[in-house]
Amino acid sequence: MTKNIKTKVLAAVALSAFLAGCNSTQDGYAGAHPVQRTQTNEMNTIVFIDHALNRTDITRTPFGDRVRDTVKVTLDRSGMRNTETGQLEVWTTIRNRTDYDLQVEGKAMFFDADQAPLMDESMWRRVYVPANGTAVYREMSLNNRAQYFLVELREGR
């Protein structure tokens, strides 16, 4: 009888631990929180701030981490260069991997050689990406002091 109770208690503990494991994700967040939410944005990167567009969810289970990618949009190529007038130009090609037309909005921020903000922040630029098609997002800094950029993308509303 005592052995039976111990077995039941052990089973309950194991079950709750298993369920807790299923529920937890990276960095202490519970529920659906993408990896991108807790990452630091490095300079000269293009990030999705709308996690419905492109995200990675890692769920910890007793059998190891379960990785699930949600990909509606990807960035096939990206680059930066200086224009004839010395401005910093950043560009990226956005690939729509769904069967529906999408609108993506982009905003660029520019920083000087010390990575200090130049207060050069563009307005949201809307890019129309046809179903399974590709479109280009491009933005330029206001002057030749820009050395670094940070681009944020979200779904257009």
Binding site: E84, T85, Q87, E89, M123, E139, S141, L142
Partner: peptide
Amino acid sequence: MAVTDQMMRDMLSNSMLVS
């Protein structure tokens, strides 16, 4: 705001104007 920002950046990238 979007149209004026876009036109401003485009004008500043035109070497016939600013160089």
